[in-house]
Design a protein around this nucleic acid. Structure first.
Lengths: 103, 103
DNA sequence: TCCATATTTCTATATTTATGGAATTTAAAG
DNA sequence: CTTTAAATTCCATAAATATAGAAATATGGA
């Protein structure tokens, strides 16, 4: 993963409301959660919520799927896993061999 | 972990320069890396670098240790692991049982 | 067609953040 | 006590982000 993409994704997760949204989606599973359900769960004004969701979509952490009037938000588990792996990439490869090891 | 703390930590990692710094530290292991080494590695002006490092320190992702004139930066592996766990907490607990499972 | 529901886009304001040069602090060495 | 090295703080400016009301769009049903 390119560092610019990883940084953007982390930045989007680094906001309380968006992190709440994303965690709620992660909890919800692959079928996705309607925008309206997120709104009633988190009690955020629609325009604000829409702004935050579209930021998560823009960086590829969430995908949307429409069914009639309802938009489902689906968290991208693979992207999340990739991000986590990126954070621990090459962990301790430069570590001197004496003392505790972190990994 | 409280969501405010998690969001702050993610936000600090969500900046290219700081993410480069943190990953370099993660690579370096528990003994830590001198600020000067980070500077020559990443080619960032001192004042800018100092600003970014202090943000990482403020959210507890990095701890500093002085040895003479040299300041070592030590990444906090436990905090990183806690952050990662937080992101996947309760993954899919609301998922309906039919179809693919993400976890 | 007309209406209700679901969600987004527009718009403006307030706040936070990034950047880097210059000056300063801290610590060791001569 | 003066110099050199390592790193931070101060400062100003530029840029990005958050917030939410009002208006607009999209979809399905009566």
């Amino acid at each position: 993963m390119q560092i610019e993409i990883a940084a953007k994704r982390l930045a989007e997760l680094g906001h309380v409301t968006r992190l709440e949204i994303f965690r709620y989606l992660v909890k919800g599973g692959k079928q996705g959660v309607p925008v309206g359900e997120i709104q009633s769960e988190l009690q955020v004004p629609g325009s604000t919520l829409s702004h935050h969701i579209s930021r998560l979509v823009n960086v590829g952490l969430v995908v949307q799927r429409r069914e009639g009037r309802t938009l489902y938000c689906v968290p991208q588990y693979d992207e999340l896993d990739g991000l986590i792996d990126f954070l621990k990439e090459e962990c301790c490869v430069n570590e001197s061999t004496d003392g505790d090891q972190a990994c």
